[in-house]
Computed example of a mutant assay.
Amino acid sequence: MPFVTTKDKTEIFYKDVGNPSGKPVVFSHGWPLNSDNWENQMFFLGQHGYRVIAHDRRGHGRSSQPWGGNDMDTYSDDLLAVFEHLDIKDAMLVGHSTGGGEVIRFLGRHGTSRVSKAVIVGAIPPVMVLKDSNPLGLPKSVFDGFRSAMIADRAQFFLDVPTGPFFGYNLPGAKSSQGLIQSWWQQGMMCSFKSAYDCISVFSETDMTKDLKKIDIPVLILHGELDQIVPIRASALEGIKLLQKGTLKVYPGGAHALPNTAVDEVNGDLLAFLKS
């Protein structure tokens, strides 16, 4: 399997498939998943002639599981290592949920010289947790509850999340997919306990307000109207105000897991943005 080694000797697994001479599209996944969660989008864009690349974040999936480095700066540095290793240029960068935060921090921290466009889906920026400067955020007690549930019974917690709010299966009239639930659980349980636990603070407390303001390339925001994991009011509706060249598309009735629950529409939006 292909890996890139970071400065702290962490082995980051990546996929590099599709048309090797096509325009690159680089994907960053959400918590506590891995690059497999982008398989529908990678297959679709690969069929349309694009080079599609995705990595497993440190501690997640097939990447190694260091005790440290579970913070957004290091995540973005690991992504840069993938870019440099594969000599990626003129890419479209796509991130879901925590991966959307990774995309925004990458662009704010490392600039846009290698990236021409970006898409964030159900993403965490600007910041999720409630504080004086973020009155629309979620109380810290919500995320403390995540940590407590992990410590009490991670395996059950990692069933409860996809069975309910992640895919929106707890909403009236929703049709659930046992396969998606099991896939989420399998990916989540591949993540190291320490990384999954630490990342709760990363995705809830990292403030990307300054990063959003720095970005000088077109950014498309896709967000579900009924996202229960990253409520739209404090994320997409605030983030769009900070971007220089931002476009927001709201999916009516959409849940958090748009790449899984609105596959055709997300694929179409990605392809249209690539061609625009």
Rank of each mutant, 00 (worst) to 15 (best):
239 G>H: 07
50 Y>D: 02
35 S>G: 01
9 K>F: 09
183 S>V: 03
78 D>S: 01
267 N>L: 12
13 F>T: 00
249 K>C: 01
68 G>D: 07
182 Q>R: 13
117 K>H: 09
117 K>D: 09
266 V>M: 05
229 I>P: 03
257 A>D: 04
240 I>A: 10
197 Y>E: 08
164 G>A: 12
97 S>Q: 02
182 Q>G: 06
240 I>R: 15
2 P>W: 05
104 I>M: 14
123 A>P: 00
137 G>M: 07
184 W>F: 08
185 W>S: 08
50 Y>K: 06
136 L>C: 00
62 R>C: 01
29 H>S: 04
1 M>L: 08
105 R>M: 03
179 G>C: 04
170 N>F: 12
233 R>E: 15
8 D>H: 15
257 A>V: 02
166 F>Y: 14
118 A>N: 05
111 G>K: 10
98 T>M: 13
175 K>V: 15
246 G>H: 13
154 R>M: 07
99 G>V: 04
161 V>T: 04
162 P>W: 08
231 P>M: 02
33 L>I: 03
28 S>D: 07
239 G>T: 06
204 S>C: 07
180 L>T: 03
270 L>Y: 14
210 K>E: 09
71 D>G: 04
2 P>T: 08
155 A>I: 00
76 S>P: 00
191 C>V: 06
108 G>P: 10
260 N>F: 10
235 S>N: 14
132 D>W: 13
187 Q>E: 04
221 I>C: 04
110 H>G: 09
274 L>S: 14
171 L>F: 10
21 S>T: 15
38 W>D: 01
74 T>R: 02
161 V>P: 11
263 V>W: 09
159 L>C: 11
273 F>I: 00
118 A>S: 04
162 P>V: 03
4 V>C: 02
273 F>S: 04
147 R>V: 12
173 G>K: 14
218 P>R: 05
182 Q>M: 11
44 F>W: 14
111 G>Y: 09
167 F>L: 10
46 G>C: 03
109 R>Q: 13
68 G>I: 00
182 Q>E: 12
84 E>T: 08
140 K>G: 15
225 E>L: 15
201 S>P: 14
70 N>M: 12
40 N>W: 14
48 H>A: 02
95 G>A: 04
55 H>W: 15
116 S>A: 12
10 T>D: 13
272 A>I: 02
2 P>Q: 12
22 G>A: 01
70 N>F: 14
32 P>H: 06
48 H>F: 04
63 S>V: 05
84 E>G: 11
223 H>F: 12
39 E>G: 01
119 V>R: 14
82 V>P: 08
18 G>F: 01
19 N>T: 01
265 E>C: 08
59 G>Q: 10
145 G>A: 05
